[in-house]
Structures are given as structure tokens and as C-alpha cells.
Design a protein around this nucleic acid. Sequence first.
RNA 1: GCGCCCGUAGCUCAGCUGGAUAGAGCAAUCCCCUCCUAAGGGAUAGGUCGCAGGUUCGAAUCCUGCCGGGCGCGCCA
Length: 567
Amino acid sequence: MKDTLLQLLQQAIAQLKVEGLLENDFEARLQVTHTKDKSHGDLATNLAMMLAKPIGKSPRDVAQLIINALPESQAIKKVDIAGPGFINFFMAQDAQSAVIKSVIEQSSQFGHNNVGNNKKVQVEFVSANPTGPLHVGHGRGAAVGDCICRLLNATGWDVTAEFYYNDAGQQINNLALSVQARCKNKTPDDSGWQDDWYRGEYIVDVANDYMTKASIDAEDQHVTGKGDPDDLDAIRHFAVAYLRREQDLDLKAFAVNFDNYFLESSLYEDGKVEATVNRLVDNGFTYEDGGALWLKTTDFGDDKDRVMRKKEGGFTYFVPDVAYHLDKFQRGFERVINEQGADHHSTITRVRAGLQALNQGIPQGYPEYVLHQMVTVMRGGEEVKISKRAGSYVTLRDLIDEVGRDATRYFLAARRAESQLTFDIELAKSQTNDNPVFYIQYAHARICSTLREIVKQSREYSQEIGVENLNLLTLEHETQIMDKMSQFPDLVNAAANNCEPHVIAHYLRELAALLHGYYQAGKEDESLRWIVEDNNVCQARLTLITAVRQVLANGLELLGVSAPESM
RNA sequence: GCGCCCGUAGCUCAGCUGGAUAGAGCAAUCCCCUCCUAAGGGAUAGGUCGCAGGUUCGAAUCCUGCCGGGCGCGCCA
């Protein structure tokens, strides 16, 4: 419907050029939007206001010129000039109901496109170090990152989901020492327990399994406990594998999958860190000062230079980070998107500076970042801060166990990443219309239920008859729903381009509301029910709601939330 | 002090690559549904879009300066 109109307007612009009203090389940024208010028609364009200056007439006069230049079309019922110079289009019913045919034809692909053209994109997210169970913040990253993958996938990109972690740094050392202490039956209350050791209960489990020589199979780690409390290296390997497995279980429960796990240690083993440093030195962007090696990040917009190699030796964390991103670039990713907590914001300038200093033709804005703000978990108006297992923070697992995967995913993905998020446990758990997840899922289930009901009544749903009678869908409820569905493809495209899964969540709430309202109309006026005597009307309506079911399912799929057939 | 993010209805949030009277849910008040699921629907009320300037035909949206909140400012990751 929108595409048709865009084409017609292009023709009108061409016609205006033929008539000499517009310069031939003028390129209009054509915008057609779905109207908010039905009295403004179905679609509207601000073209006249954009052309007012180049043509040199008032917007409303220009609007008339555009309308005159518009080719005849069956799709348009009426055209109005309104307000400061908007052109409002009222579309013919069959142009509106065409969306139903599109949904039927494209089915699970409806809303998808191929703008990515199968180019490679990598999304790195979660990337938690294996020092404990995932917390809510990781959960937000997991939800947002996974949804971005789904969106990019739906828009034709070849997506690689990657998890990067440090398996060798000081934090891991502390982890090993904590486990070793537990192996020797020390507790955080004992003297000698260091401040930076991990105190959570889960450390006891790691220690017990290590001592009883258990085997650990994580996605990317396979280790058997040695049982020797004095072998710190063995403890370290075991603990890393154990906590990676722990995180795998959390992610699996959250329906998040990764294509690749990348170890920071591999960058050292493969000589990539050294190669990166040499390259930076060779390119003249480094200097020595106070026994340390510095990178001139100020040459690339940083507010001060950064240390690369510490006085005592050893690189700072951002050096392997640069090596890692060079590796991503060399793996041929057209785009790289890093989803991280906003507390890591300061690394952006450093990593990008490092990449530019490598002088390898890496684009300036590479990699892209999506940063999410903090999550506050509330229960009954009180902030929840601790979990028994992890001690100092609320784990993702706590949430999934208590409110379920679907609700957790929805709530963590339904906010703009840049906004701080309040996760209300009571709300997420409630099974009423307060809770958008249930509300949306119920809309889907309600349609499924109706299709079961028709069978109970010894009738059957015929898509063929329905499609033949789409012209009977003239109720306001029906046109609103068709209009809403026709917005879905643009919405998905925008959500993917901007890495904003939350717009999908909001859209689904709105579509579900229209569906419930449509249903309710039948409660008040029997002739408006979906299942009615007149078979043509009935089939047309069933075809409509079946299309709605498909769009709801497609949207929920993008969020990784299930679409139940009954509840 | 510097950098980034946020500030929209009582609450939780959309809208922000400028467009028509600023939207939704919850909470509040009132009403409807013996029916395909009462796990639903409708109505009313609720706003100086943090404040002040600027840009322009037009600003919640862009720019500047303030105010308030969060995060980050390590030779930690």
C-alpha cells in the first residue's frame, strides 16, 4: 500500500520536472507516513512542504500541483490537502486488505527483508568473565543482544553471535584462589581471606566438584577436576570451565545461543597481542614514559593517552581488546556491534583509537556500540539487591526461575537500552492485563482458541473463501488492524537498522490491543463476532485474525518470546 | 571538575534522523461483557514534554547554557 503510493508520488515528481516546475536534478527525500489520526486518511506525505521552497509557492499550492500531477490509481479513494500542507491519502479498501494476502503468502517471513544482502555482521554480547553466575545486567545484555541478532537475521544479514571472555587475568586468579581457599575449608569469615576474593556460595560448589573430581562440559570448555588443592593451575582451569557451564545453563534457560566463544588468552597464544603492539609502535603512535608504554589515543579524540604496557610488564586490558577487534575486522565482518553495559563506556574511544592507529583501513565508527543502562530489580516497592547464591547481586537465574523466561526476556528487551530499567518482579509475574507479555500472548492464544471453536461448531476455516471475501472487512476495527499490520515491515526494518528491539515489544502491545478490542466488539454486538452465520463474512474475519496471529507470532519470535496456542 | 546516558501524566514508559490537537499501560472515578477464554472492553480525569535562550514555515525532537538523577573517569577488567 505504501509502496504503491511512493511510486505514484515519484511519478508526480517526474511530471513536475517535465512541466518545468522543478529542476531536473532535484532529489526529493520522499516521506510517506502512516497517520496517527484516521481523519487524516491512511497515509500522508509532507512532500508539498519540502517542495515549497524549490518551487517557490506556498505549501498548499504546491500540494495541489502534486495532486494534479499524480497518476490515476484505483488504490486511492480520496486525497485531501490539510493543515500546513500535508497531503492525506485515503486508500481503497482492497489496497488496505492486500496486507492480509501478503501475510498469508510470506507467512513467517512477513516483515523480513533482505537489506543485509547476506553480508556478515557480528554481534558481541554478554561477554561475562567466568567468575560467577550471570547477573541481571548480563540478562539485559543477553536479551537485547539476542534480539538484535534476530532482527539482523530477519533483515538479511549473516549474523554471528559471539561471547568474549577473559580466562586468564587477575580476576581469574582471584577466582582460583577463592576456590582453593574453599578446597581448604576456609570461609570468608576466616582471617587470611582476601578482600578481592569471591565470597558467593557457588564457590563452595566449585570447590566440592573439583575435590570430588567431577567432569565439566561447557559449550567451549571440557575439564575434569584433579582433586589436588595445591595445584592452583588445575583449580583455575576447572573453575573457569565450571563457571562457563554455569553461565551456559543460564543462557540456555534464557533461550540465548552463541555461535562462537572467544578466549582472551587465545590472543596471546596466537601472537595477536604482540603483533598489534608492534604495529602500533611501528606506526609511531606510542611512546615510553615512566617505564610504561603509552598509546597516543589523544590523536584520536581521547582526553588523555593510555598505558598499553605497565611498568611491571603485562598489557592493560584494552590492548588485547584492540587485537580482538582487529581480528574481527580480519574475519570479514562488514559490521560489528558490541552490546555492553554502559559502565564500560570509556573503552569505546580507546578501542576505536587503537584500531585507527593500526592504519589497516578500518572504518572510523568500527565497531558500533549499543550500551545498556543499569537494571534495578523491585519487589513490592523494595529494591532487591542480593541473591543467596551469588551473594552481592541478583542473578539472571533468580529472575527466570521466579517470573519465567518469556516475561524476563520481554521486560529486559522492552525498554530503550539507554534508559535505566526498573524490573518489577510482581508485575512480570502477574497473569493479568497489567502484564504486557501475557496480554500479547493471550491475543495469540485467543485467535488459536477461536480457530478451535469453529471446528467444535462443525464448521471449518477456509482461507480460500476468506481471501475471496476480504472486501467484506469494512469495520473500523478491521481497517485499523489491517493498517497496523501493514506497518510491521517498516517497523522491523527500522528496529534492525537502529538496533532497537524495544519498538517491537511496543508494537505487539498495540496490535494485541486492537485484536482484543475487535473481539470485545463482538461481545457487545453479535453481528460483529468473528464466528457468524454468514459464511463469507465469517471466513473473511477468520482470515484477518489468522493474519494477526501470524504477525504476533513473527513479532514474538523476534523477541524470543513464545507464542502459546492456549493459556 | 571532565565525559557519556537519562529527565514526557501520580507510577512505569513510548514518541527524539523536526511536522498536524504530545501517546500507551498501571493506579483513580464510572460503565459494559449469561456469548469464540471475565487472562477482556469502553468512558472520564490527569501534561509549563526539567528550566532558559537559539535555529525555522514548524521544536518533546536540533544547538547552547543551566538544574536534577545515574554511570564512568586505574599502569583494574
